[in-house]
Structure formats: structure tokens, C-alpha cells
């Protein structure tokens, strides 16, 4: 009973669209109100002529925005859906390649495990080291450095996600019992994550004095809520769709998604 790659990919795209749409709803309901609070601070600055708008990006607090706020909100939602589709495609390819090695009961369990690993490795870990910031915080001078650090932590997260299963397989080959393997896997993951967090330098930016701490906290929570929603929806929808193909094998031809 082979599952074709095409059917996995179609479900990945569909799950990605769902993930992007739910993420867009979370952005609209949770993130946008915080962005509005931050933009008010930027407006106040340009009114007082204090801190200048970031060089090369005149739309931030500028008089003549390149793109209206309404267009930015719609653009943000469209971007979230595009990101969802791209993540869904990557998810489907990785899932197909790793299917027989993913732990979890059935394809639903495997999908949820992979989504959890994805969230932890490429969303949560980078967010812990280089936390998200609302408008009015980032220093344009350091964006290159912050981007490099962010990408580095993301790649290290992927490396950990690949390394720990290899360790697990080595232990299994040596006949280590599952409970011991689980313990070693968990400890290894924690140690590697702590090493990444301790050794990689953090963001060089200081938060400007006119940005309240509560605003930063709200924004980072909202950002993580959006990312978690995206991964959760992806894992749930992909798992449910795949479970439906596998269960009534041949009784129903898989409905073209």
C-alpha cells in the first residue's frame, strides 16, 4: 500500500492554505492591534522630529506613505497565506521523506509530531534568541546582523532536529531500551538548545525608551500565537487529510483535493 508523493503534496498545499488563512486571522485579530499601538509611537516621533524614520524606508512614519495602512494590512494577510503554502509544501516533502521514521500513531500522529518539531526548530528557537519586535523598535543599522543571527539560530534548530533522531537511531542499533532512549533524546535536545541560546550572541539592539515594555511583551506573545496557530493548523489539517486517504483504502478513491 504505497502512498503516492502527489497525494501527500496536494494535502500539504491544502493544509498550508488553511494554516496561512488561520494565521492571517490571528494577525488581523491579535497582531494588528499591537502594530497600531507601535505605529502611534512612530507617528509621535516624526511629529516631534525626534528619531528619524529608518533610512530608505520612508513609509514608516513618513508623510507620504508608499503603501497605505489598509494595503499593508491586506498585504500582510496575503503574505501570511503565501508563507502558509510555502511551509505546507516544505512540510509535505519532509513528511514524505521521513514518514517511516517519524514517531506517532498513524499519519495524524506523525503529522502532529513533525509540526511540533517544525514549530520548535524554525519558529520558537529563533524567537527565543532574536525575539520579534513591533515597528518602532528595530535599528535599521543592525538589521543585517540581526538577520544573520536569526538565520543562524534557525539553521541550528534544524540541525538539532536532524541530529537527535540520528542519536536515537544509534542508540536503538546498540539495543538501548526505549525509555532510556527517550531520556537521552530529551536531555540531548535540552543541552543543545541551551548551548545555542547561551553561545549565539543576542540582538545588538536596545529597545528605545519611548516603547513601553508591555507593548513589546504583547507583540512577542501575539507573534508567537500567530506562529503556533500556523503550525498547529498545518499539523492538524495535514494529519486529518492524510488519515482519510489511508483509512478507507480503495473503498473510496481519494477525492481530488
Amino acid at each position: 500500500m504505497g502512498l503516492s508523493f502527489g497525494s501527500v503534496l496536494r494535502r500539504g498545499v491544502l493544509a498550508g492554505v488553511s494554516a496561512g488563512l488561520t494565521a492571517a486571522v490571528v494577525i488581523w485579530l491579535v497582531v494588528e492591534p499591537v502594530i497600531r499601538r507601535a505605529l502611534a509611537i512612530e507617528d509621535l516621533r516624526s511629529m516631534h522630529g525626534g528619531q528619524s524614520a529608518p533610512a530608505g524606508l520612508p513609509a514608516h512614519g513618513g508623510d507620504e506613505p508608499l503603501v497605505s495602512r489598509a494595503a499593508q494590512v491586506v498585504g500582510g494577510a496575503v503574505t501570511a497565506v503565501l508563507v502558509g503554502v510555502a511551509v505546507g509544501i516544505i512540510f509535505a516533502v519532509v513528511f514524505a521523506r521521513m514518514r517511516e521514521r517519524l514517531p506517532g500513531r498513524g499519519d495524524f500522529g506523525r503529522s502532529m509530531v513533525l509540526a511540533t518539531i517544525g514549530f520548535g526548530a524554525v519558529s520558537l528557537l529563533p524567537a527565543l534568541k532574536i525575539p520579534s519586535n513591533p515597528p518602532a523598535v528595530g535599528d535599521p543599522e543592525t538589521v543585517g546582523q540581526r538577520t544573520m543571527l536569526y538565520a543562524l539560530v534557525l539553521l541550528l534548530g534544524v540541525a538539532i532536529a536532524l541530529l537527535v533522531p540520528v542519536l536515537d537511531q544509534r542508540l536503538a542499533a546498540r539495543g538501548t531500551v526505549p525509555s532510556t532512549r527517550w531520556a537521552v533524546d530529551v536531555v540531548a535536545t535540552v543541552v543543545l538548545v541551551v548551548l545555542v541560546l547561551a553561545l549565539v550572541p543576542g540582538s545588538p539592539d536596545a529597545v528605545p525608551a519611548d516603547v513601553p515594555a508591555a507593548l513589546i511583551w504583547d507583540f512577542r506573545l501575539a507573534s508567537l500565537a500567530q506562529l503556533a496557530t500556523m503550525w498547529l493548523t498545518l499539523g492538524l489539517v495535514f494529519g486529518l487529510l492524510l488519515e482519510r486517504v489511508a483509512a478507507p483504502k480503495r473503498a473510496l478513491e481519494p477525492v481530488a483535493a
Binding site: A23, I27, V31, E32, I35, P54, L57, A59, H60, V67, Q72, V73, G75, G76, A77, T79, A80, V83, S123, P126, A127, I130, P131, S132, N133, P134, P135, G138, P140, V143, R146, T147, Y150, S203, F219, A222, S223, L224, Q226, L227
Partner: peptide, 12 residues
């Protein structure tokens, strides 16, 4: 812009 901020990628 808004999605970049929400996704947490470093932005200006």
C-alpha cells in the same frame, strides 16, 4: 510589512 513583523523575522 505586517506579516514580516508578525512572523518575527528581523525587520528594519
Amino acid at each position: 510589512h505586517d506579516a514580516r513583523h508578525a512572523l518575527g523575522v528581523p525587520c528594519h
